[in-house]
Design a protein around this nucleic acid. Structure first.
Lengths: 96, 96, 96, 96
DNA sequence: CCATCTGCAAATTAAC
DNA sequence: GTTAATTTGCAGATGG
């Protein structure tokens, strides 16, 4: 077995070490997943609060996703310009 | 207009108030969305680190999602797929 | 068991009927999947041909996806306008 | 310019030729993309029909994707997950 | 409350 | 082999 390879195949003395490593990774990921779930719950709450204040949450969602898309659309546009510039042998740097 | 209803339509000065409220909600949600993205990126990093240590990240994901689910529900699902497979004369052993 | 429910649970005489139905659905889907794969392969071929003619396939892909996005962006825009119109109690029909 | 290179940059009359070629490639690809979309829609319809007949479409999807894969690879994967689960002291029964 | 549907995340797949 | 892109699958949200 390569030395940079975790051993979980059992039978020999590296077993425990790999199991501990595995457990550590699993715990870290599960901890982060919990944090993520908490944030998702918070976001849901804010939408509910907005709804209670009279805002249509569907419209609000569209608005926010539209704003997010504007940003990614801008990046996309620059990427396309860069590609065409490269295709034409231009210096892409001039676009910032 | 009901007093608990945000004003986003009228022709009076409540416009500004509703607009401020809306802006506040949008900012709060976008802030939380950024936090969520950061966490998702962190999780991705941990998987990468685990992979670098020799663990199979695909297997790791399946393991973690299995831990998040109810054991009896998992067994139940497998049993149903097994029934379908049997109806087709497939090797039922392959499901897990 | 409800009469509109496929029986794959075994043991009784509806077993064979449901198995035949299941097999038919599986075969239809797998047939369509094959067609889809053939089309995907064809598309790949066209890109290769374009590349052989001197076109940068990466640029070509960007061009085509940008054209596709223009169409969906228009639909999205109309959907948003419709939502706002509805929120304001307007007749959406006037937008076409 | 090499003679097998499409001209999308020069200042001469080959412009028109390259533009026509490009247009032709774009049209062919977009045509195929439409066909692909039609097939995808058809597949979706079949799943809906199967669901209407009482089959669980989620299970059906898993079944079909399993059929598309190599059986020994699937068994191998399950065995590895079992090893990981054992390292964590989980109930391995849910994987096998 | 269920069933449909959109939107997001993950897994596969292709390109380099 | 590794990153990037497409596609599939899932979960959450909305409307009946």
């Amino acid at each position: 077995m390569a030395k940079d390879q975790a051993d979980i195949s059992g039978g020999d003395n590296n077993h425990a070490v790999a199991a501990d490593q595995l457990r550590a990774f699993v715990e870290r990921i599960e901890r982060m997943n919990e944090e993520k779930s908490a944030i998702v719950a918070d976001i849901k709450e804010i939408y509910a609060e907005a709804k209670g204040t009279g805002f249509d949450s569907k419209v609000l969602r569209k608005l926010i996703s539209a704003r997010a898309k504007d940003v990614s659309a801008l990046k996309e546009e620059r990427a396309i310009i860069g590609l065409y510039a490269a295709a034409l042998g231009m210096d892409e740097g001039i676009f910032g």
